[in-house]
Simulated scan of single mutants.
Amino acid sequence: INQLGALLKSQGDLDGAEALFREALKARRETLGDRHTDTLISINNLGQLLQDKGDLDGAEALHREALEAKRETLGDRHQDTLRSINNLGNLLMNKGDLDGAEALLREALEARRETLGVWHPSTLASINKTTTSARF
């Protein structure tokens, strides 16, 4: 279900993708629970899709849920947690909450520097996003 949703999203059928992402999330919550890695992937997928569709409030709720769960289950320095921190930071930047975005993007950057090193592609992407955020 999730893979078909991703395919529809890549083809531009955002409504079709949303229906499938919601179905996948519901099934994963019911069978795996709210904190399972696959459930968190579904939460993230739906959050990103809602962001792409312009539903920033709906996306924010999902990004916050995913981040909270990843902090609890994986810790603050896990790469999946850092990806969620970055996702929420990007969303807040899109919403115009530049202070909130900057705090999260800086957190992701510093953690990536510590865990991955200065020249890792994820660290460099964080540097780019943080400097972009500071210019707005």
Rank of each mutant, 00 (worst) to 15 (best):
N90C: 12
T130M: 06
N90G: 11
G100C: 15
H63R: 06
E72T: 08
L92C: 14
E18G: 05
L56P: 02
R22D: 02
D52R: 09
L25Y: 03
N94R: 14
K26M: 11
D52W: 08
G54D: 07
A17M: 13
N45R: 09
A19M: 10
G33M: 13
K53S: 02
G5A: 08
L104G: 15
A69I: 00
L82M: 07
N44K: 01
N45F: 01
P121W: 02
E68V: 07
R35V: 07
Q79D: 10
L88P: 08
L91A: 06
E60N: 09
S10Q: 06
L91K: 06
T131A: 07
N128T: 09
R22Q: 13
N128Y: 05
N87R: 11
A108L: 08
N86Q: 09
D13S: 05
A61L: 13
K129H: 15
R83S: 12
R35K: 07
K9Q: 05
E110H: 05
R22Y: 07
L40M: 12
N2V: 11
H63M: 04
D99G: 11
L88I: 09
E60G: 01
E65L: 07
H120I: 11
E18T: 04
E110K: 11
N90M: 13
A6R: 05
G54M: 03
R112Y: 00
A111H: 00
R71G: 08
H36S: 04
R113M: 03
K95N: 05
T130L: 15
H36C: 02
R113Q: 10
R29D: 01
N90H: 13
T37L: 06
T31Y: 04
G16E: 14
I41T: 13
F136T: 01
T31H: 15
Q3S: 06
P121C: 04
W119Q: 14
N86A: 12
T81Q: 05
N44T: 14
L20A: 07
I43V: 11
K95D: 06
R77P: 02
D80F: 04
T37E: 06
S42E: 13
L8M: 09
G12V: 10
E107C: 12
R22S: 12
L62I: 01
E102F: 15
I43G: 01
G89A: 11
I85G: 13
R112V: 00
F136H: 07
R113A: 01
L124F: 03
H36I: 09
R71I: 13
L88V: 05
T132D: 02
E114R: 02
